[in-house]
Design a binder for these strands. Structure first.
Lengths: 199, 199
DNA sequence: CATCGTAAGCACAGATGTTTGCTTAGTGGC
DNA sequence: GCCACTAAGCAAACATCTGTGCTTACGATG
């Protein structure tokens, strides 16, 4: 072969960082393509151009790998803005979530959260902590509101009225209303707790 | 052996009905025991005392089997009462749901609904129909209310405010509030749609 | 009572996923 | 520049899942 400049073709081996990145991307790709059905470790490894033993040794199980990818991506793609008011923060957060689950990738990531959830009857603690992590943004918003002198709705209410609708729609692939959905959910939440007229 | 009365030990083979029943029970058992991790067809078949080929031929795939079990059980365990009023019907339905997801089995069944959901990007239609089936009860409640002259909240609102919280809690194993939860959810729903004060 | 169709069981084969021992490239400390 | 450490790659064994051809019990029908 008349190739004079040998580029780093000698790279017969990927660095740990490259492996991590390639595997993560492969998970995303396969998730988007087949929706999780074909999401097996050998398939992921092959798609990533990595030996499957590397994946087994690094992550141990499909569940752990999924959890890693999901955590990384969701924290990157579902940012937390500071708009100066409780209502604004909540709307911004829901809006980001809606945007996220409008994409196939986003939907499947959220779905993968459920899939990668520890499910045994004894894994209650694990599961709670796992889920807690997903609620980090919500807790931050509540803290900021309190610091400003606003009184945020209890976590349970936010769970039921903001988080739950988003997750349900993501998991079951139900399209959110075309417009005004974040405002609808947030105002419903704030009205129901701000104006208790039933006790 | 001094056994005089030979009970149907000659039953070397289970009837189709027995197979179905044993397999269903095995799915429930394994679901409750290991939470779905070990839920493989050979394991299910062995636990049911049935040849695994019978399961493969009858159901074809784990996904289909799960869907069958879930449908059967949920329709049996999550009944639909007629209380005479919209609010009563909704509360009764939510209450049954809450009771259901308080048990490990119920929680895992609901979770299995999500797990058995077709997930490919092209399975949108499948998914919608699948989910529709889960909403049958809600639609019946709405129809009855309409027939009585009441105006039920739109399906979307019920989805967001009743169905979503139940599913979220089931899937992630979050305990519902100890008391008054059904009433809380339903009244919140009816207030927010019944007394629109924002337009 | 004879016959037929259905579906369960059995044995076995092929594909796929999981794990281990070993070698070796890459990286940082001395 | 030498050495030790970490983690990737490779090959092969191992376990498990998936699917097929065949036989045969069971129930229905006449």
């Amino acid at each position: 072969m008349g190739v004079t400049s040998k580029q780093p073709t000698t790279r017969s081996r990927k660095s740990p960082e490259e492996v991590r990145s390639a595997v993560h991307q492969a998970v995303i790709d396969l998730l988007s393509a087949s929706g999780g059905a074909e999401l097996t470790i050998p398939a992921i490894a092959q798609h990533a151009g990595v030996n499957h033993t590397s994946v087994y040794r690094r992550w141990g199980s499909r569940e752990a790998l999924l959890a890693d990818v999901v955590t990384t991506r969701l924290e990157r793609d579902w940012p937390l803005d500071d708009t100066g008011t409780l209502r604004g923060d909540l709307i911004a957060w829901v809006r980001a979530g809606v945007a996220s689950i409008r994409t196939t990738e986003g939907r499947l990531l959220v779905r993968a959260v459920a899939l990668s959830m520890p499910s045994g009857p004894d894994a209650q603690a694990d599961r709670a902590q796992h889920f807690r992590r997903r609620l980090h943004a919500v807790e931050r918003i509540r803290e900021r509101a309190t610091a400003r002198g606003e009184t945020p709705p209890p976590l349970e209410s936010i769970l039921d009225q903001l988080v739950a609708p988003l997750y349900l729609r993501a998991i079951f692939g139900i399209e959110p209303p075309a417009s005004g959905y974040p405002e609808l959910l947030v105002d419903r939440l704030l009205d129901s707790t701000g104006a208790p007229g039933t006790d």
